[in-house]
């Protein structure tokens, strides 16, 4: 990935670009899903862009992240290619997972992106493991786990943070508190008012930042990364944010009103950061419009290319289970395909 140095003006423009790219990508994905173009489920990151981009900007290129079911933003923030992502959403052969994973399982281990994840709370143990590798090998790498407010209630998240804290692993745990665990407000799921307070139980630093302010997220993760890399162990950061879309596309959202959403849209992360950059003279309104148009075009191209890309050959369904050759799979698959599968 290209590392963003948000302390520089170039870095700030790149951070803005990535936030815009996430919004354009996910807005498009939502439209495509509504039009019946995309199979499966899509969970959109619109509204939460500052968290992903702010956090990833504070990482080094070789650092790891683990993601969630709402992972498109993390992928783009970590520098993954929207084209290959869009292809994956379409289930095409040139997608990140050759069409096997889809929206909820995009991964690029070489880029340090250990996978979006369909299981709420499954990412943090993986980050703990990645951090363990870094510690054992003496590598200057840090593993950052993104997870939602809902995941804070998952037992394995507690286990993962406790292990990382006990072993002083180079990990950073970022709770994206978007105020709802699926369709239930956060206060109905947790007895603490600030999810970062749970850090006290692990004897590690924990604090809450404004997840609508990319500079706050960046700075917090930067400090946490330094601490982790310095051998002092993990930090728990809660970023308060909001998802503008439903839990999944098609969610009727009976649990909130338009007004609830507008309160957060008034503090929109992209709009406010852009305004600050305009005020500071880092970007002009015209340059911003130009950047936005470029990104929209890039996403349109990604969609066009994904649409025209070939699907994987049906026989690919039987590949990639193991590194080793397992006779069962070839035997059973040929039996099943002999029953007409091939011509389907």
């Amino acid at each position: 990935m290209v590392v963003i140095d948000i302390e520089t003006e170039d870095g700030q423009r790149e951070a803005l670009r990535r936030m815009l790219t996430i919004r354009a990508f996910d807005t498009k994905a939502g439209d495509l899903f509504a039009d019946g173009e995309l199979p499966g489920f899509v969970h959109l990151y619109v509204g939460e862009e500052a968290v992903g981009v702010g956090a990833c900007s504070a990482l080094e290129a070789d650092d790891y992240i683990t993601s969630t079911h709402r992972g498109h933003g993390h992928c783009i923030a970590k520098g993954l290619d929207p084209k290959k992502m869009m292809s994956e959403l379409y289930g095409k052969a040139d997608g990140y997972c050759n069409g096997k994973g889809g929206s909820m399982h995009i991964a690029d281990v070489d880029a340090g992106m250990l996978g979006a994840n369909g299981i709420v709370g499954a990412g943090p143990p993986l980050a703990t493991g990645a951090a363990l590798t870094a510690q054992l090998k003496g590598e200057d790498k840090v593993a950052l786990a993104f997870f939602g407010d809902g995941a804070v209630a998952q037992g394995q998240v507690h286990e993962a943070i406790n292990i990382a804290a006990t072993w002083d692993l180079p990990a950073v745990f970022v709770v994206e508190n978007n105020q709802y665990g699926e369709g239930t407000p956060v206060e109905k799921q947790h007895n603490v008012q600030n999810l970062s307070e749970t850090a006290e139980a692990y004897n590690i630093p924990g604090f809450t930042v404004d997840g609508m302010d990319i500079t706050a997220v960046y700075e917090a993760v930067k400090e946490a990364r330094n601490r982790a890399a310095d051998g002092q162990g993990p930090t728990l950061i809660e970023a308060e944010t909001y998802r503008y879309h439903g839990h999944f596309e098609g969610d009727q959202q009976p649990y909130r009103t338009e007004e609830d959403i507008d309160i957060w849209k008034d503090r929109d992360a992209i709009e406010s950061f852009k305004q600050r950059l305009v005020d500071a003279g880092t970007i002009t309104e015209d340059e911003f419009d130009e950047m936005k148009a470029e990104i929209d075009e890039q996403i349109e191209t990604a969609v066009e290319e994904a649409k025209s890309a070939p699907y994987p050959d049906p026989s690919e369904a039987y590949e990639d289970m193991f590194n080793a050759t397992v006779p069962e799979i070839s035997q059973f698959s040929s039996q099943m395909r002999a029953d007409g599968g091939e011509d389907r």
Partner: peptide, 27 residues
């Protein structure tokens, strides 16, 4: 470090094993 006692957290350390395996360790 290499013969590592864990907390009684099977989900946590199994997950850590998976994460370690995905990143170049052989747990």
């Amino acid at each position: 470090a290499r013969v590592r006692d864990t907390p009684i957290s099977e989900a946590g350390f199994m997950g850590a094993g998976v994460g370690a395996a995905a990143t170049g360790s052989r747990p």
